[in-house]
Nucleic acid binder design. Structure first.
Lengths: 173, 173
DNA sequence: CCTTCTGGGTTTACTTTTTATACTCAGGTG
DNA sequence: CACCTGAGTATAAAAAGTAAACCCAGAAGG
């Protein structure tokens, strides 16, 4: 590792989209709440029964997911009952599917039940089983070892809060 | 939701590959440790400096990742120094790339710096930028709303710990 | 041989999250 | 009016995370 010329060695690690995503969905239960909603639950009590998590945490997680526009509440009414609200996934929430399916795929490969995966995912209609893939814009399959990370437009170093194109290399700590 | 015929309504939610994956990599800092290693760090001190996380947590996370075969330690030696060990990602660890890139992609879309993503990922060689995609085995692009989940071979209900075709009902716990 | 330095941790005291369980509140039903 | 249900709040105890000090092995200097 050449730390003197690698711009990453001095980058501002707080400015990271992985970290920012985890700030929203990285707490315990959050991704599992979404899982249950994808699997068909939508009401507080159902989510609580399926997850077995503390009720206050469930309430808090739902609030945060709604705040961030990943879930939306919509009113519903069972007859002979007052109107209540339930939780539905939004398109922004659905954009988390590749990430979560990536976790599912890894778990299926390395940590599934001896009998096999508990859940199979299929393309509705065509019925084909799914996989999460990394592709480049020329549609090549990209293996982990063929990924190259470079500074983007929002890149910042620790010492230089904003990196513009004419930026001189910063010094190490 | 028809809870009387939906097998998912009574499924054993603990038997889930998403949950099992999160047991390994779902704790705070774990995925960020992997991020740093993908970005090029490998030594304890470098990881600690980049992440700014508590040293004991870093040690614990590294231990767990090694235990699970996601990282491996390998000895290295700078001259005039004793041999130490550093951390390298394994193929099993690299299989987490789609999931993590999924998180990155979501963060880039919804929570990036106003200037744009801090980091660009490219296909080495071809240079094309990357995307994480869900595809079916017939290579169709699959949108979140076109995903269907069905019970797989390891499927269990709460009341039936193991679901085989001929299974008699067992007791819980 | 003794002291100091460095990388790679461990210990400890403290704060924040999570957990479990009890309680509340707004309608609707008998 | 008492009671039930879904959807939460409140609260106390346990677990996880944090910050900062401490430790240890070997190399280097004196």
């Amino acid at each position: 590792m050449d730390t003197t010329t690698d711009p990453f060695a001095d980058r501002d690690t707080a400015n990271c989209s992985i970290a920012r995503t985890l700030e929203v969905v990285g707490e315990k239960w959050t991704l599992l709440v979404l899982r249950e909603i994808w699997y068909g639950s939508s009401r507080f009590t159902d989510l609580h029964r399926m997850l077995g998590c503390p009720r206050n945490l469930l309430a808090e997680r739902l609030r945060k997911l709604v705040e961030h526009g990943i879930l939306a509440t919509e009113p519903y009414q069972e007859d002979g009952a007052r109107s209540r609200s339930r939780y539905a996934i939004t398109p922004k929430g659905n954009d988390l599917v590749p990430a979560v399916l990536g976790l599912l795929q890894w778990g299926d490969r390395y940590r599934a039940d001896p009998a096999g995966p508990a859940v199979l995912t299929r393309h509705r209609g065509c019925g084909g089983s799914l996989s999460v893939q990394v592709r480049c814009e020329h549609d090549h399959h990209v293996r982990a070892t063929d990924i190259e990370a470079t500074p983007g437009p929002g890149f910042r170093t620790r010492t230089n809060p904003v990196t513009k194109s004419d930026q001189a290399p910063g010094q190490t700590a």
